[in-house]
Write a protein that binds this DNA or RNA. Structure first.
Length: 402
DNA sequence: GTCAATTCACATGAAAGAGACCACGGTCTAGTG
DNA sequence: CTAGACCGTGGTCTCTTTCATGTGAATTGACGA
């Protein structure tokens, strides 16, 4: 045992690959952000008045995941904070909040609670009327003269779950504050997000808009090269590896984060193998590994009822050729629950669960109509055979089911 | 043969209930002077 | 007399159920040629 461990640690010790892995991690802040100078300039010029203590326009940032929105706004934020003068009679605060994080999740209450926490006060997770929390928030803000730039990342996620009232309140906040001024920076992945929103809110929230277009493969390559220089040792990357990474990510609507993950995981795989270089095959492995881990993690942490449903889907796909439908799944699910003496959810609920699996990318779902035969979802598993086996094993283990 | 009505098997929405968690404020108890 | 223990009330959260309404096309059936 010890010898094996020796081997492991030894190989880790003299690794040929990494110089500084953190450069590839998603929270790393590079000194330069390639291909985003336009957007950064735009944002900076909009927010510049805050340095003089004036309110700036609200901004809305659009762009798909991994197009550098978050990075850019953080960059501007740091630069602003660096330049703010100490002897001003106001304070400039910039708070960033990702609305999609689990703990923030999807209620107005939680978002406010999180904001209050950022401002340095505690609020219980539950138990208070929302209005109290609101008042407290306002009170804290107004306690001193300050300019607050509120960056709300993935705001579309939040609004989808909460009503748009939240945004409305947000835009109206300024009128309730006497000393403090707020400006909101909304970030959204969904390009059509503002369409379904009350025009009044829309116009006040998106006084300015900045669009982040996806990176193309060449730009991705440059980004990867830049990061790779700092994170890997010399000659640690084989020919064509970067290009392949970029190509993979470009296929996924130019997601730079994904490209970086790909490269990092590939590096880790190569390191573990004791390879001196990252080779093309490591990228492939990395790609499947990322998919795999993501899905398996989801499956593992899903609640019981979800697992029953997924298990039914897997079983059905084994026994049956071709697609199957909501009703099939529900019947199988019912039997499964009865067999396991578990309570049975209604069809309504199971339908929602199926839809959630679709959102997670584990299954593919299409609503079809069979004329008089009714209208239902056509369900297909969207993961590879080996992954299905693995998932099945996990569920059987969790459910203690043979 | 044609066209509108019907019908199936769910989808999709809205509202509300159950059970868990929690803060707040009032009341009770025990320890202190 | 006061600090801390202990309750009751009222609030939020998540997961579900209930009730209601919507939906796309195969099928039916009336109608006219």
């Amino acid at each position: 045992m010890r010898e094996e461990l020796d081997k492991i640690f030894e190989s880790f010790d003299n690794n040929y690959i990494f110089k500084d892995k953190s450069v590839l991690q998603s929270n790393y802040m590079p000194h330069e952000i390639p291909h985003r100078s336009e957007q950064i300039k735009q944002i900076a010029s909009i927010l510049a008045p805050t340095l003089r203590g004036e309110k700036s326009s609200n901004i809305f940032l659009y762009g798909k995941t991994g197009t550098g929105k978050t990075l850019s706004i953080h960059y501007v934020k740091d630069e602003l904070l660096r330049r703010v003068k100490k002897d001003n009679d106001f304070q400039l605060r910039i708070e960033y909040l990702n609305c999609k994080l689990k703990k923030v999740s999807d209620t107005e209450y939680r978002i406010l609670a999180e904001l209050i926490k950022k401002l340095g006060q505690e609020i219980p997770n539950t138990g208070l009327p929302t209005e109290t929390v609101y008042n407290k928030f306002i009170e804290i803000l107004d306690s001193e003269k300050q300019i607050l730039i509120l960056i709300l990342d993935e705001i579309d996620q939040a609004v989808k779950k909460i009503s748009t009232d939240f945004l409305y309140n947000l835009t109206r906040l300024n009128s309730e504050l006497s000393q403090t001024q707020i400006c909101v920076v909304g970030i959204s992945n969904d390009l059509t997000f503002l369409e379904g929103i009350d025009p009044r809110v829309r116009s006040s929230l998106s006084e300015e808009e900045v669009v982040f277009s996806p990176y193309n493969a060449i730009q991705l390559q440059e980004i990867l090269n830049q990061r790779a220089r700092d994170s890997f040792k010399e000659n640690a990357i084989a020919e064509g590896v970067i290009a392949k990474c970029a190509a993979f990510a470009a296929r996924e609507h130019g997601d730079a984060r994904r490209a970086l993950d790909l490269l990092r995981i590939a590096g880790e795989i190569a390191e573990r193998e004791g390879s001196k270089k990252i080779l093309l095959k490591h990228i492939d492995e990395s790609n499947t590994k990322i998919e795999r881990e993501k899905i398996l993690e989801v499956i593992k942490t899903e609640p019981k009822q979800f697992q029953y449903v997924l298990y039914s889907i897997i079983k059905l796909s084994e026994h049956k050729e071709g697609p199957f439908f909501t009703g099939d799944v529900y019947n199988h699910y019912q039997e499964l629950c009865i067999k396991n003496k578990s309570e049975v959810l209604t069809q309504r609920r199971v339908g929602d669960i199926i839809q959630e699996f679709d959102m997670l990318g584990i299954i593919n779902v299409r609503v079809i109509s069979k004329g008089r035969g009714g209208r239902m979802r056509e369900i297909k598993l969207a993961i590879s055979k080996s992954l299905i086996e693995k998932s099945k094993a996990i569920i059987e283990e969790v459910l203690d089911y043979k």
